[in-house]
């Protein structure tokens, strides 16, 4: 029988993985408050349904897969509640780091470009370009075939490059 999860394990998962989960969540849902919800829900799911024994390190690929699925699920719920298909929530500007970044217009343009991509393509960009995962790790995390990961990432990058050409 699997032992009950320990509260210390939950703290450990949060301390180790919250930032990476947040980046994936933010890239998919855009809104910082919604990204916070994704992080919290992902952490609780990981804590309760961990594929490893208590005290052992949770595999990052598995955790990022949970984060991606949770983000997409919450984003779809948000869209259904507001009846706004195929859009991302506007950033509420709640994140202090966002306020500190110069070139707000440039970031807005970047978010617009990201918005033209689908959820998986945004997650691909975050996992590869920001978290630095290998193609193999991304394929596992997103449950996509390796060639598909590559071809979709190539095209997603091209979309971003074209959109940001004027700013470079």
């Amino acid at each position: 029988m699997t032992p009950a999860p320990d509260a210390d394990d939950l703290r450990l998962v949060v301390d180790r993985h919250a930032a990476a989960v947040y980046r994936v969540a933010r890239s998919i849902v855009h809104d910082p408050a919604l990204a916070d919800d994704v992080v919290q829900e992902t952490m609780l799911k990981a804590w309760r349904n961990s594929p490893v024994e208590p005290g052992e390190e949770i595999p990052r690929n598995w955790l990022l897969k949970v984060a991606r699925n949770t983000a997409i699920s919450l984003l779809r719920t948000w869209r259904e509640d507001l009846h706004v298909p195929d859009t991302m929530p506007e950033s509420s500007g709640g994140a202090s780091t966002t306020r500190q970044v110069e070139g707000r217009a440039q970031l807005d343009e970047l978010w617009k470009a990201l918005e033209t991509l689908d959820e998986d393509a945004r997650a691909l960009i975050a996992l590869k370009e920001i978290d630095g995962l290998s193609y193999e790790e991304i394929a596992q995390a997103l449950e996509l075939p390796l060639p598909t990961v590559k071809t979709r990432l190539f095209r997603a990058r091209k979309v971003l490059k074209d959109a940001m050409k004027e700013w470079r």
Binding site: V14, A18, D37, T97, T98, L110, L160, M164
Partner: peptide
């Protein structure tokens, strides 16, 4: 562009505290 992406999706400094409080 990678730096911009990192800035756009960077986590807030108090993320861990917020997450602990939230869960």
């Amino acid at each position: 562009l990678v730096v911009d992406l990192q800035a756009a999706t960077s986590s807030p400094v108090d993320l861990k505290e917020r997450t602990h409080g939230g869960v």
